[in-house]
Design a protein around this nucleic acid. Structure first.
Length: 423
RNA sequence: GGAGAGAUGGCCGAGUGGCCGAAGGCGGUCGCCUGCUAAGCGAUUAUACGGGCUAAUACCCGUAUCGAGGGUUCAAAUCCCUCUCUCUCCGCCA
């Protein structure tokens, strides 16, 4: 969430930022609620002060054996007033909280301004999309003919947008997970964690999925737990309500997890293949950084994700999302898009964001500065990478005319020396 | 799942109705002392919110906070209720 004091003191700046995002927010309503809240708060605190003072007097009088009935009677009435005012303040709090929790983050000044993805800015390209002498096949066709992906039985056993990986397909997915984790832990300095794959409501609020996007989540029906949409949620919440040491920053974690997304509103989009599933694997990178250098850390994290694609020899490009295209909690996001031959375009395979203190404020993740004062950390995360989409990209980019798939060199020893996946 | 114990500041730990934002210790910070080091002495050391004063996140005042939420009371860390979590024993289990 945004800093309430900042919103109070700079409503115009917030308003303009929200316009750049194309976000509808009830800012004026919030400001007037905020003012009312402070008025009522001053009033009730005054009464509480009175009660505290008089209660002490009553204690002293009773100790001396004197009569305090009149004061007790008075304070009884004050207590009633306090109860009512407290209730009013609580209701105002709930209303204004609902509004502020629904206000997205302020976009960083370096973003291209524009209300949709057409304004996104391409930063760089790596690798050359391969020229095919034939029409390249889609990964779902390759997967079915090689008998390494099974969408029909996925749909039978669970439903639409669920799939089985089989044989060397499963092996490839698993090889990628291990490969990515090995690079990030061994060469990029991240500490691996295996998080819970379900989290409670507070964790979902901490990273910004709730309260606004509940319909995109899978909720466990007989409990208050949610299936994680990304390891970002449990890993960022690792340090929720904690105060970290400044000298420990940045803290770097990577995590493999399956991700569960209801994909509400995605009907009809990417209905075939591994691109948009209700369950997919992902290796996530998460950083807890010092506010002074969080943007450098974002660059590094993005490079760490790119490194995986480079090692796999997959062509990609990096784009900076425009103000109208970044996610709710993000201040700045780079999307890494991998080349997919059958789509004849680049598709998102990683999204790397700096949330600044937006998540840290919601989740109350702080560090102690040189003066000993707690400050909010900046949180940064990105996919390193979406594994299912990486598998798809490998299948499509490394397909051979005979329908087989060449295994990228760096993966071969993870595949037990297999060089080609063929029937 | 059954029985019991517990949750207090950065950490450990005392505190069963008012003088408790909370003893004591550890750790941290500042100062003193000691020709290094170790030790010693003194002081200081929670957070959020609101108000005042400001260049100020500095200072002053107030309110709240002793796992969370509710209740009793003039007054709750302390009494009552509900929930969450932790530990011990038993059962079950990959």
């Amino acid at each position: 969430m945004l800093d309430i004091k900042f919103v109070r003191e700079n409503p115009q700046i917030v308003k303009e930022a929200m316009e750049k995002r194309g976000a509808q927010v009830r800012l004026d309503e919030f400001l007037s609620l905020d003012e009312e809240r402070r008025r009522k708060l001053a009033e009730v605190e005054q009464l509480k002060n009175n009660r505290n003072v008089v209660s002490k007097e009553i204690g002293l009088l009773k100790k001396e054996g004197k009569n305090a009935d009149e004061l007790v009677e008075q304070m009884g009435q004050v207590g009633e007033k306090i109860k009512h005012l407290d209730e009013e303040v609580k209701q105002i709090d709930e209303k204004s909280n609902e509004i502020i929790m629904g206000i997205p983050n302020m976009p960083h000044a370096s973003l291209p301004i524009g209300l949709n993805e057409s304004y996104n800015r391409e930063e760089r390209k790596w690798g050359e999309p391969r020229k095919f002498a034939y029409e390249p096949k889609a990964h779902w066709d390759l997967g079915e003919s090689l008998n390494i992906l099974d969408f029909e039985r996925g749909a039978k056993v669970t439903g639409a947008r669920f799939a089985f990986y089989k044989g060397l397909g499963a092996r490839l997915e698993r090889a990628l997970i291990n490969f990515m984790l090995d690079i990030h832990t061994g060469e990029h300095g991240y500490t691996e964690v295996i998080p819970p794959f379900m989290v409670n409501r507070n964790s979902m609020i901490g990273t910004g999925q709730l309260p606004k996007f509940e319909e995109d989540m899978f909720r466990i029906s007989n409990s208050e737990y949610f299936l994680i949409p990304t390891a970002e949620v449990p890993v960022t919440n690792l340090y929720r309500e904690e105060i970290l040491e400044e000298k420990d920053l940045p803290i770097l974690h990577c995590a493999y997890s399956p991700c569960f997304r209801a994909e509400a509103g995605a009907h009809g989009r990417d209905t075939r293949g591994l691109i948009r599933q209700h369950q997919f694997n992902k290796v996530e990178l998460v950083k807890f950084a010092h506010p002074d250098n969080s943007y450098e850390e974002l660059e590094k994290l993005t490079n760490n994700a790119e490194k995986i694609l480079q090692l796999l020899e997959l062509p990609y490009r990096v784009i900076t999302l425009a103000t109208g295209d970044i996610g709710f909690s993000s201040a700045k996001t780079y999307d890494i898009e991998v080349w997919l031959p059958s789509f004849n375009t680049y598709r998102e395979i990683s999204s790397c964001s700096n949330f600044e203190d937006f998540q840290a404020r919601r989740a109350n993740i702080r560090y102690r500065d040189a003066k000993g004062k707690p400050r909010f950390v900046h949180t940064i995360n990105g996919s390193g990478l979406a594994v299912g989409r990486t598998t798809s990209a490998i299948m499509e980019n490394f397909q051979q005319e005979d329908g087989s798939i060449k295994v990228p060199k760096v993966l071969q020893h993870y595949m037990g020396g297999v060089e080609f996946i063929r029937t």
